[in-house]
């Protein structure tokens, strides 16, 4: 079954964030809640919608991941770049802050 996370951009600065346990938003993909199945994913997105109403994030959506060594890894190039930073600037973005690929 497909594993999914919920991601968005933070309202104040536009930073890429992931929905973490207890409704927190983290800049680290590793912190994201990973769910399986339509019901769980829809419920997770529902939690995110509350954060939209609370002016925390903008435009949340579900994204597919795979689990490697227990950590979520993006399945598309786009989500990989969002989770790391521009591929042409390894010195910028999350990748520069020592986050896992």
């Amino acid at each position: 079954m497909t594993q999914e996370i919920v991601t968005a951009n933070r309202l104040r600065d536009g930073a890429v964030v992931y929905l973490a346990p207890e409704g927190y938003w983290s800049e680290r993909l590793a912190d994201a809640v990973v769910v399986e199945g339509e019901v769980a994913a829809a419920e997770l997105l529902g939690t995110a919608e509350a954060a939209v109403k609370a002016q925390i994030v903008v435009a949340p959506y579900r994204a597919d991941v795979t689990l490697e060594s227990g950590l979520p890894v993006p399945r598309t190039t786009k989500e990989r770049i969002r989770s790391r930073g521009p591929s042409i600037h390894p010195e910028l973005g999350k990748q520069a802050e020592g986050q896992p690929a």
Binding site: N9, L11, D13, G14, A15, V16, Q55, K78, I81
Partner: peptide, 25 residues
Amino acid sequence: IAGDISEDEFKPLRLMNGLYLQLHA
């Protein structure tokens, strides 16, 4: 930021000032 206007209301206003939301910021 205070929540007085929604993103749907705000988006056309920010776009009129050249501000887009992209991948990282």
